[in-house]
Nucleic acid binder design. Structure first.
Lengths: 214, 214
DNA sequence: TAGATTGTTAATCGATTAACAATC
DNA sequence: TAGATTGTTAATCGATTAACAATC
């Protein structure tokens, strides 16, 4: 499916956005869309959209545009959302619980099978049917349950240790919410989500706009 | 402070990362740092670091490098974290509650004064001392309490309406967690945080790594 | 002073945009 | 067929990297 050569990070980061808009259009019954029309909706250029799609293959038809649900399915596949993944969450605090409660993940094939924590008060509990186990049992659990994705929602000082244990257990994909950049070997995928970074950027922008006004 | 011309989005998005590393170094007692050493820690080039800092002014000293706590303070100011902001959260579900529970925001001057929801079961409750009010009372509350930042953690279909109400009420800054891109006027700052986008990117990368191996 | 390291200009690289021939 | 719109090549733009004079 993928054309020769690596796809740039910039393109990859736009894929979920395409997916969101296409799913939405599909839902509201739009059958076909041109790059021009899509560019208006998404705030990108038509040229960029065509370039992006052509990193992965020719999904369109000259004179017609793109078939919405076909294109949506292609992008779903490119993102790997046509498969199912078992997921564990380490750190059953606020963020961990919020994530385990979010049904949207299950809908796209991400099944949270267990959470882990060090706090004895939490161990043994269940959140929306997801059991919380002792963190000590995590490495064993990974090995026995075909876990593909590990979520880290612990405090920052424990995050790297947890990540190392996950990698040692064979997890190939880490979604990190702790406020440090978790380091992993080259053959492991990692996404560091820093919520406060995003708040600080917002703060910068707000102050910047005020500066412009005055 | 800021040099002539607009600072690029790419630079702005790196600022919180600098801030994280500098705070961390300050905490562990590092007093000075060269761009070269910092580049090693952060995985950037020394050149880029110096370019970035020089968008805002010359914070370093030839032959010496940068004074960690001074630089950290400068970046804090650039991000606007030396001020205090009143914040409201609309949508008291999982995400909203997790955000209101997170003490890190308060520490940087973001004070969550109230949450709002439409669910009668939630209205009247408090989360860690933050009261949940009826969503109907939001516009009035904004006007009376000097609210600078509005957080949206509602389902997607309500997000744009809420954003419009916030803007009408005079809020200049929106932090949106709903899975749509909220549209705002030019003079309002917005950060759209899409957690599932980040999960899908992780999924893409994991599958991409597997493809490479085979 | 000599060494180190910045601030800044110039060169390179990559991503975005424009243009257009191919074709449905 | 004529019109529309893609896929793709070429041009432009901006961001990153390299180089080095200034200077602590």
């Amino acid at each position: 499916m993928q054309r020769s050569g690596r796809v740039s990070e910039a393109v990859i980061r736009r894929l979920p956005k395409y997916y969101r808009y296409l799913k939405d259009m599909e839902k509201s019954g739009v059958q076909r869309i041109s790059s021009k029309e899509l560019s208006k909706r998404m705030g990108l250029t038509a040229s960029q959209i065509r370039q992006d799609f052509n990193c992965f293959g020719g999904f369109g038809q000259q004179g017609y545009g793109y078939h919405v649900s076909d294109l949506c399915n292609e992008i779903r596949k490119i993102l790997g959302l046509h498969k199912n993944y078992n997921v564990i969450i380490v750190g059953a605090g606020n963020v961990g619980q919020a994530l385990s409660n979010y049904s949207g993940f299950t809908r796209e094939g991400f099944n949270i099978t267990a959470m882990f924590d060090a706090n004895p008060r939490l161990i043994g509990m269940s959140i929306r049917g997801v059991p919380i186990y002792d963190i000590e049992t995590m490495p064993e659990y990974i090995a026995n349950n075909d876990i593909r994705i590990g979520v880290i929602s612990t405090p920052g000082d424990q995050a790297q240790t947890i990540a190392n244990q996950m990698v040692a257990g064979g997890i190939k994909s880490i979604w990190n919410f702790a406020p440090i950049d978790v380091k992993v070997p080259e053959d492991v995928a990692v996404e560091n989500v820093h919520l406060s970074d995003s708040l600080y950027i917002l703060s910068y922008k707000m102050n910047d706009l005020e500066r412009q006004e005055s």
